[in-house]
């Protein structure tokens, strides 16, 4: 908490986008209580790209959802550009990309991308937004604007959901295993696209994945969580130099980094 307040008072908040301090999230039911996250603290710099690794059930999704004000926190604090998650959500700071694209099946591609422009004006409003057509082109789906989601492949659907996430120019993009269900080639391609979009837009991104190479390739930093309860196991600087190309994955340095991350993961298990 202290760090968050110091930041608000002193230096401009522009250096830190998301600040998580001693976060605890518990799920209480009548019979049991599961501590999903315990004493989690870390910072995400503005316009940073942080990837997140951890064994299944360690609370990665819960962490993203706590940041986006989708689950109630039980202790500690989260600050998003100096605001509470709820204030940030109401100001439309966030966009969320789910593992399955979560497109509205009755809406065409273009109408799915437009959805964020049609709702939630009461809160913060959508003053400034990207052109849906341009975003569809950006994710490489020009010409398929009128298609319904069930006419697209899984990879295409995921691209649509990324375009939808970008349409309101979010300050924070939270991605929960967005490419988990895709084949490796498609995944590589979307990884490169994501990096390009990230550089173009300056969005702060948190990206959950189960793939160590993906985490190392995309992230400036990689947050490794341990399970039961979810704690920060390591917060590793990855940060391969720009421009990052897929070829860096064959370098010795990359292999050493992934080996390091893998060791962090293995000591958990």
């Amino acid at each position: 908490m202290t760090a968050v307040q110091a930041e608000e008072g002193g230096r401009p908040a522009s250096t830190t986008a998301i600040s998580v301090r001693d976060l605890v999230v518990r799920f209480d039911s009548d019979s049991s209580s599961v501590t999903a996250l315990d004493a989690v603290s870390f910072d995400v710099p503005e316009a940073g790209l942080v990837t997140m690794l951890g064994p299944t059930g360690c609370g990665k999704s819960t962490l993203l959802r706590a940041i986006a004000d989708l689950v109630a926190i039980s202790g500690g604090g989260i600050s998003v550009f100096g605001r509470t998650p709820e204030q940030a959500r109401r100001a439309r700071d966030f966009a969320f990309v789910f593992q399955d694209a979560a497109l509205l099946p009755w809406r065409s591609v273009i109408d799915n991308v437009r959805l964020p422009l049609e709702v939630g004006r009461s809160g913060g409003g959508v003053e400034q937004h990207a052109e849906p057509e341009a975003l569809i082109a950006l994710v490489g789906l020009s010409g398929r604007e009128g298609a319904l989601p069930h006419e697209l492949s899984g990879g295409m659907r995921q691209r649509v959901s990324i375009a939808r996430a970008l349409v309101c120019r979010p300050r924070v993009l939270l991605m929960d295993e967005p490419f988990g269900a895709l084949d490796e080639i498609t995944r590589d391609k979307l990884n490169e696209e994501l990096l390009r979009i990230w550089k173009e837009t300056g969005t702060t991104i948190m990206f959950v994945t189960h793939s160590v190479p993906e985490a190392a390739f995309l992230g400036q930093k990689c947050l490794v969580l341990s399970a039961h309860p979810g704690r920060v196991r390591a917060y590793v600087d990855v940060g391969f130099p720009e421009p990052r190309e897929l070829a860096i994955r064959d370098t010795l340095e990359f292999v050493q980094t992934t080996a390091h991350l893998r060791r962090q993961l293995e000591t958990i298990a």
């Binding site: 989708l70 966030f94 979560a102 964020p116 709702v119 939630g120 009461s122």
Partner: peptide, 11 residues
């Protein structure tokens, strides 16, 4: 997930 999406959008 659609409900969560709508909540993120403050609908």
């Amino acid at each position: 997930q659609m409900l969560e999406l709508m909540r993120v959008l403050s609908a």
